[in-house]
Design a protein around this nucleic acid. Sequence first.
DNA 1: CTCTCCCTT
Length: 980
Amino acid sequence: MMEQLDACNQLEAARIHKLVARKKGRPGQKDLEKMAQWLDRGQARVTERQAMHKPATFPASLPVSERVDDIREAIEQNQVVIIAGETGSGKTTQIPKICMNSGRGIRGLIGHTQPRRIAARTVAGRIAEELGEQTGGQVGYQVRFTDTTSDQSRVKVMTDGILLSEVQHDRFLDRYDTLIIDEAHERSLNIDFLMGYLRQLLPKRPDLKVIITSATIEVERFSQFFNGAPVIEVSGRTYPVDVRYRSLTGDEDDRDQGWTDGVLRAMEEIEQHERAEKQPPGDVLVFLPGEREIRSLSKVLRHADLRHTEVLPLYSRLSNQEQNRIFQGHRGRRIVLSTNVAETSLTVPGIRYVIDTGVARISRYSVRSKIQRLPIEPVSQASANQRAGRCGRVAPGICFRLYDETDFINRPEYTDPEILRTNLASVILQMTTSGLGDIRHFPFLEPPDRRLINDGYKLLEELGAVDDKRRVTNLGRTMARLPLDPRLARMLVISSEQGSLAETLVIIAGLSVQDPRERPQDKQQAADQAHAPFNDKESDFLTLLNIWNFYEEQRQELSQNQLKKVCQKSFLSWMRMREWRDIHRQLTLICREQKLKLNRDSASYESLHKAILAGLLGQVAVKLEKKEYLATRNRKVMIFPGSKVSKTGPKWIVAAEIVETSRVFARVVAKIEPEWIEPLAGHVVKHHFFEPHWEQKRAQVMGYEKVSLYGLDIIAKRRIPYSKVDPAECRNLFIRRALVEGDYQSRAPFIARNRELLDTVENLERKTRRRDLLVEDEVLVAFYEQRLPADIVSGRHFESWWKQLSADQLRDMELTEADILQRPVDEQADSLYPDYLEWEGVRYPLSYEFEPTSERDGVTLQAPVMALKQLPARRLEWLVPGLLREKCIALVKGLPKALRRNFVPVPDFVDAALENLQASNEPLALQLGEQLRRMTGVRIDADAWPQEDLPKHLRMNLRVVDDAGKPIAEGRETEKLQSE
DNA sequence: CTCTCCCTT
C-alpha cells in the first residue's frame, strides 16, 4: 500500500502516513480499511485531475512566454526559484500555467498568494479565462469570506493571510505541491512571516516547490535567504520612462506652496512637450502624502485655468463611487492627485506622466513612546521607481521628480519592511500558539529588533495572553483563535464575562473595517446632518453601535436595493457596512465555537466600556486643561477633532488608538470612570505607599497609597491600613506613638500603671524644672520592643495579645522606677513641691509647668472667684519651698549694686537668712531684708527690691475660676486681680 | 480643529 501512495493525492497520503506513524507501523484491521478508503479516494482525485489536464498555451505577446522552458526547467531542478520581473511581464498569470504544464497541481494544489483580496480574485479570473474556464474549476480563489476552490482545483489563488492561517491546521502545508509567493518585494508582515516559515518547512517537504516572484528589487536577498536559489529575470513589457529631476526652488518652509509651484511648472513642461511632439494632452498622476495635501492642491489646480483639464482626488478613504471615477472615460486631460494607493493597490489607467513629490506618510512604531507615528518621509528609491513606472504602461512616459538626483541617490534603496515598523504582539502570539518556537530564533529575512520583540511581549502580558515568564495562558490561546488584533481579542473574551459580548462583537467588527461613514468634499454638511442621529457625546464606540443598530433595523425590513439607497441617503458606505456584517458574522461563529456567552439583555455603558478598557489599558488619558490630555507613559494627547467626544471633553477617557500625525491624537475614544481601571489592570498598575501614621481613633497605623498605570496616577492618595504594606514599620509606630507617647486608650492594666508612673515623673520634672529625670523615649521603646511579639502591629492585635498573658508576664510588662529614672528622685520632692497650698483650712490646687516661653511657666494657683478676697496675697509671694531659695537669690541679685555687694556670696547669705524664715502672709522681700539687716546691719528700703522684672516662674501665677471651674481671669498681679 | 496602506484562524 505504501508504494501506491506516490500515485495518491498528497493530503490523503499525508493522512495515511500520519496514521501509520501513530500506530507505530502496526495498523490494525480497522485502520487498514480506513487507509484503503483514503487511498482509493486519493488515487481517484489524481486520475481525475490528470484526465482534465490540457497543456496550457502562452500568449506570444507576453515577455514571460519567451522564458517558459527556462522557468519550467529551473522549477523541475530546484526546490526554490526566484523569478524577478516588472509589471507587465505576465509572470503572475503565466507561472501557475507553467507549473501545471510541468505536471504540478495533480497530487497537490498549486498555491498562489497575493497581498490583496481584489488581486487574488482578478488573478484567479484571468488564469481561468486563459484556460478557457471560469473560476471554480481548475482555478479557484480563496479570500476572507469567499472560497471558490473545489475538488477539481489545481490552482488556488489566495491572499497571503489565508495561506498563513492554514499553517495553524496544516503544519506541513500537505495539500500543496507548489507554492507561488507573488509580490514578495512588498515585504508585508505576512510575506516576511511566510518566507521564514517556508525556509523551515523546505527540508521537511522535499517534494514541495516554492517560487518567489518579485519586482527586480531585493532579488539577491531572496536568493541568499533560500540557499542561493536560482534567479530568473523576465523583462517587463513596459515603455521607457524619462525621469526628469525638477527640484523645488523657493521657500523650504512652506512645503505645500513648493509642491504647488513644482506641479504647475511640470504641467507647463508637459504642455510644451506635447506641443513640440504634436501629441494630444495625456493624463497625469501626482503622488502626494495625504488627503490634506490633495485637497489643497486640487483647489489650486482648479483655479489655475488649465485648459480642458479635469482634476480627480484619489485616496483609500474615498467612497467607491468617487474612486471609480478614475476608470470612467473622459475628454481632454485628467490629473489624478493620489496618495500611495496608486503606487501598488490601484492601477490608474492611461497615465502618461507622473509627478512625484517624493514623499509619503509611512507608519512607524515608536517602542519608546508606544505611539504609532505617521510622519511624512522621503520615499525609498524602490518606491520612487515604482511610482515612475506607473506612466510607462501604455506608451513612453515622463516622470517629474520634484527633488534632485543627489537626493534620490542618497535615499535608502528599499522601504523598511513592515516587520521593523510595527508592534509584534499579534505575530508573537500566533507563533507561540502554533508552536513555531521562539520568535528570536525564527529565520526572518530581516529579524526585528530585540526591543521590538520585548515590546510585543509586554503588550501580550498587559492583555493577559502570556504570563510574566512569557508562557501563553489559556486566555492567550483563546485570543489566538480570533482573527483579530490581540487588543480587540482581549475585549471580546472579557466582554462575555461582563455580559456585553453582543455589543462588543459589533464594536470590534466595526473597528476592524474602515469607517463606513462617508463625508464627500462637496456634501460635508449634508453628511454631518445625516450622521447626527448616530452620534454619542460620551463614546465613539456607542456611535458605532448606533450606526449598526440603524443598519440592522433597515436591513431586516428592506430589499437589498432599498437598503443600498438608505445607506446612500445616510452617507454610509454600503460596501463597508457589508464587510462589517461579514466580520461580525464570522466572529459570532467563532465565539459560539469558543463557548463565549452572548448576553440577551442589552449591556450597560459600564459593562461595555469595562470590556473595551480591558483591551486598551495602555491608552487611558486624563484631562489636563481644555483640549489637552495626559495619557499613560507621560504622553500628551488630544482627542481627534472628528470625535464627538471631543466636544464634551470628559475627565477620563480611553482611546482605541493613539496616533501621531500633525499632533498626537487619540482616535475613537470614550468617557470612563477612573475606578474601573484598577480592577482590570491589577497586573500592570504600580503601587506606591507613603506617610504611615498612627491614628488613635482606629487604633492602627494608616497610610496612603498612590496607584499608577504606566506612570499615570489613577488614584492619587487613598487612605489604607498600613499593616499589609509594612508590618515592621506599623509595629514600630504602634510602640512609639501608642505605647510610649501614650496616644492610645488601652484596657491593659499595666498600660494605666505605666502611664501613671511616667506622669508622676514627668510632673516632678515640671516641678523641679529639670529634664534629666526621665530616661529618653528610646529606652521605653526598647522596653516594649523586647516584650512585644513581632506580629503586634495595632490596638486590636495588642488587646487580644495581652489578654492571654500570665500574671508573671503581665507583671513583666510593668515599668519600674529603675526602668525609667536616670537618677534617684529627691525624697523630699513632695514636700518641696506640694500639690496644694493650704491656708486657713482652704486647699488651693497648685500646678506646675516648665516652659520658659509659656505664660504659665512656673507655679499656678487656682482659686474660685468666691474665695478670691480671702486669698492671702502676700503668702503667694513665698511660692513653694522648692522655689523659695532661687527666688530669694534673684531678689538679692536684683538689688542696686551698692546694696547688693554687702551680701556676697549671695547664696550663702540667702541660705543663712532662710534658716530663720517661715512662709507667712507677710511680704517676702521685707522679711528677707530684715534677716539680712540682722546679719550685716545694712538696711534695705522697700522700693529697692525688684518686683516686676523677676523671671515669670519666680512669681506665683493666679488663675481665677468660676463655680463651674472655668477660668475667668489669670495673672501674676494677685492684688490687681483681687480688686477687679 | 483633521490621518499612508493592506491582511486573517
